[in-house]
Design a protein around this nucleic acid. Structure first.
Lengths: 334, 334
DNA sequence: CTGAAAGCGCTTACAG
DNA sequence: CTGAAAGCGCTTACAG
């Protein structure tokens, strides 16, 4: 409507002081009768307080969320879950993407600070020294998602245990010659812990010489490393892929190489994208509870804002999803 | 570091007035020498102006982006592209997701207004009367993405022409009994225009009785409608799916029904997700230029903010991607 | 339960 | 090219 109402206008129109209108919006003491008068005027003029003028307010009710990319299913789920929780509690989620660029990520933190967010949830590409310094300076709560962060609060997937689960699963199914397509170690969660879990799981089953490769997160990357592994070990039994997307790449390469899944080579991934079920055969994978991660992240940041006690690290569970990409009794069959 | 520097502090420390510091940040006239003095203090204290205190500023350099969901590849691409463009121009992108809920979408618009954004890019689920009224009231530029908006500025995919392309492609390949899995008509772009293009394209080739179904956007929905179509027309030649995801569903159902793709039934989609190449056989699809849409959207909103002339509607192109899911000479083969 | 007053940290004419 | 002053639209003790 019309120009731009201010709180002073509303106060005048309702015949009260503007402090009272302010209190009305911020849940202070206002008599029922007064409330109604104000309410009426607000409705009529469709008034909304200008968030930007809350200079003196302690809280902005804004929470910043920084994600490494917007092009990911998982990220989408986590953020959706955060937003649902926060919106419910009357907070506004401000999403920033770092587009896989560390400098941009640091810049995002700065921008959110400038916007006076009450807290930041960050799913970082990698926590560098710069991050740590920045987090030290910051006066507001920070929750790190999907990466362990010893100096602070984090919500993490159970990468090690999940990796081990997959490792032993493949091992127990009787595979002997196993390949692993991992990711770079700058990603501690996936690149280090998940991998360690897989290797430990395999080792428990007596598989001590897996062929390990490293890739970026792309479909193309998965293909490239799958090809390399296949060259090194033409007698490959199974490939464990650090993400489903990499498994997609492996499928393609195995297909091209004339290898049948799972009869010649078993394949497993991590992720549990919807798409995994469309592969032929359906991919056996493991799905982390992304919605849970978002939920706990949001819950935790609000608790911190309210100065409540929170645990240093919360571990989110996973679900094993059995597809048809693993040969069960590999050993016996031979 | 320490507490919280203000512009006044910086002014004092640099021995200048705070108006000068303000000008320094906003590109006003400041002598080189003075600039350097200020620069030095800023560096030392790691100072950043508080965006929230810019009450009197005309511009916030904030652009709001509203998307229907964060769980979509396409959306991810569009937003990534917008953010890249805007960041380059020193604007901050504020992303809000409507989670496929109209009320939430309206609420998002309000929230962005409260945050004093300079403009809004909205990829709406559907433009309702409420939207139109809201857009009227709003004093800032609005660009609608992916939906036509006669009362304002929009960037759209060339849905009709793309649909027609697919329709004639399937028709010319000699298919006779064709199914179409569409989406609900609340989505004008996909639900109406894309479909009309497909139907017109088919008709041109003499196919006047396609079996048309409607679905939501989900994998499950695609399966459901594919099943229905198959029941109505067991002698089906081809299925055209309004999105790749729906095509994924169709693949699954055809697979279960023992139909071979493309020998028994050809399948095509729209979308061009990376994943489409992992289907066996690879899906023939059509990819809209999502990065282009983001780019033009961002460019346009900035032009509008600068009161420059912009065209009412910009149409983004597509690329046809030939997979192996269509039988070329269906007619001849029989 | 309510209002007057001071103040939040910036920006913006304005005068110099 | 620069600074003093007024003002942006709210919030917050404070006194009542």
């Amino acid at each position: 409507m019309a120009k731009k109402m201010t709180m002073a206008d509303i106060a005048e129109l309702s015949g009260v002081g503007k402090s009272t209108v302010s209190r009305f919006f911020n849940g202070g003491y206002v008599k029922q009768e007064t409330k109604e008068k104000i309410q009426k005027v607000i409705k009529e003029y469709n008034y909304m307080p200008n968030t930007f003028a809350r200079l003196k307010a302690k809280q902005s009710n804004l929470i910043g969320v920084i994600v490494p990319t917007l092009n990911s299913k998982i990220t989408g789920r986590v953020v959706t879950s955060i937003d649902r929780y926060l919106r419910e509690k009357n907070y506004t989620t401000l999403i920033q993407s770092s587009d896989h660029d560390i400098d941009q990520e640091l810049e995002n933190i700065q921008r959110l600070l400038q916007l006076n967010v009450d807290g930041i949830l960050i799913s970082s590409i990698a926590i560098t020294q710069d991050h740590k310094e920045l987090f030290q300076e910051i006066q507001i709560p920070v929750v790190v998602l999907a990466q362990e962060y010893d100096e602070g609060i984090s919500i993490v997937d159970d990468d090690y245990r999940a990796g081990k689960h997959m490792g032993t699963y493949i091992g127990k199914a009787g595979h002997r010659k196993v390949g692993y397509i991992g990711v770079y170690e700058t990603d501690e969660a996936v690149g280090i812990r998940r991998k360690q879990g897989v290797l430990d799981g395999l080792q428990e089953c007596g598989i001590t010489d897996p062929i390990v490769g490293k890739s970026d997160y792309s479909f193309i990357g998965g293909q490239k490393v799958a090809r390399e592994i296949l060259e090194k070990a033409p007698d490959l039994d199974a490939i464990i892929c650090a993400t489903d997307r990499l498994a997609f790449g492996a499928y393609k390469i195995l297909h091209e190489a004339g290898k049948r899944i799972p009869d010649d080579v078993s394949v497993v991934g991590f992720g549990g994208y919807d798409e995994s079920t469309l592969l032929t055969p359906e991919l056996t994978t493991l799905k982390f509870d992304s919605y849970g991660m978002g939920y706990f992240g949001a819950e935790t940041i609000l608790k911190m804002i309210q100065k409540k006690r929170v645990s240093k690290r919360q571990v989110v569970d996973y679900t094993f999803i059995e597809g048809k990409s693993v040969k069960k009794n590999k050993g016996d069959a031979k």
